[in-house]
């Protein structure tokens, strides 16, 4: 019976691995296409005074957005630890933050998209995109293309950061708290009763057990943020540039990364579940 179970488990693992590759392929091909397209466009446009490397501003944008969400996620995880591990359930700070998180988390992310759009694209008719990237809109002048980056300390940039934080932090706090709570009480009790301090319990048991889930949480939050940004780009590209252009490349790249992160987080959760699968201790 045991052999059968291991066999089934191995099979399941194989299947999940295979589907991962297939999905990676599905996501990877459009991204690859974008890369190809852009480099083709590069050579074509070399004469038309276009920046030689169009891919690099795209990647820079992606990098910037990822960094912002990364910081937001770190803060979210820190808050989750503080609330879940240090504050008693009835503490007013905990109640307050948890209700704020519940309210913010209940808002669909497209709302943030619209909010950001409203702010970033208020200058009707001109594609300001995120306000810093001056796009090729009507003039077709690609030379103004600039990456979104930390160096450009425009207010709009900070609004973007704020949107990301509002969008990413509640999700992270909520799910990271759930991950910490999923470390079963008996495990903590056992460690405390052996004389472990709070830090030791966290360091030796809680964090190793919850880490995969917390990582998955972070990836999921990043993914939802990127997907929203991708949607904004998508909508505005079609509206203002009449067809696929630099912006829709961005759309594909962001959406692709979002999908990738989302799949990655599902894989993490799946791996975590099969690692802790245990008939005698069902996870809560």
């Amino acid at each position: 019976m045991n052999a059968m179970m291991t066999c089934a488990l191995r099979k399941q693992k194989l299947v999940s691995q295979r589907s991962t590759f297939i999905i990676l392929g599905i996501v990877g091909i459009p991204i690859w296409n974008v890369l190809q397209e852009t480099s083709a466009a590069d050579t074509e446009a070399a004469s038309a005074a276009m920046p030689l490397n169009m891919l690099s501003p795209l990647l820079d944008d992606l990098y910037t957005l990822l960094s912002i969400s990364f910081v937001a996620i770190l803060f979210g995880i820190a808050w989750a630890f503080y609330l879940e591990e240090w504050l008693p359930q009835t503490h007013w700070v905990r109640r307050f933050i948890e209700s704020v998180v519940a309210i913010l988390g209940g808002i669909p992310s497209i709302f943030y998209g619209i909010l950001a759009t409203g702010v970033f694209f208020s200058d009707a008719g001109t594609l300001k995109t995120i306000g810093v990237v001056r796009g090729p809109q009507d003039t077709g002048d690609m030379s103004a293309l600039e990456p979104l980056s930390f160096q450009q300390e425009t207010p709009v940039f900070y609004i973007l950061v704020l949107t990301f934080i509002l969008m990413v932090m509640p999700l992270t706090i909520k799910t990271a708290q759930a991950a910490l709570r999923s470390v079963a009480t008996p495990i903590r009790e056992a460690a405390y009763a052996l004389g472990a301090s709070h830090w030791q319990v966290l360091k030796k048991q809680v964090i190793p057990i919850a880490l995969t889930r917390i990582l998955a949480t972070g990836c999921r939050a990043m993914s939802s943020a990127l997907a929203t940004v991708a949607l904004i780009f998508g909508i505005y590209t079609w509206q203002y540039t009449n067809g696929p252009g630099e912006m829709s490349n961005r759309f594909v790249l962001f959406l692709g990364s979002a999908l990738f992160l989302s799949i990655f987080s599902s894989v993490l959760i799946k791996l975590d579940a099969s690692a802790s699968a245990d008939p005698t201790h069902p996870t809560r």
Binding site: Y192, L194, G195
Partner: peptide
């Protein structure tokens, strides 16, 4: 104290 006074629980709770 907890080193000197060990505890065993109702449900076996070995660490994972």
């Amino acid at each position: 104290l907890r080193k000197a006074v060990g505890m065993v629980f109702q449900r076996p709770n070995p660490l994972p």
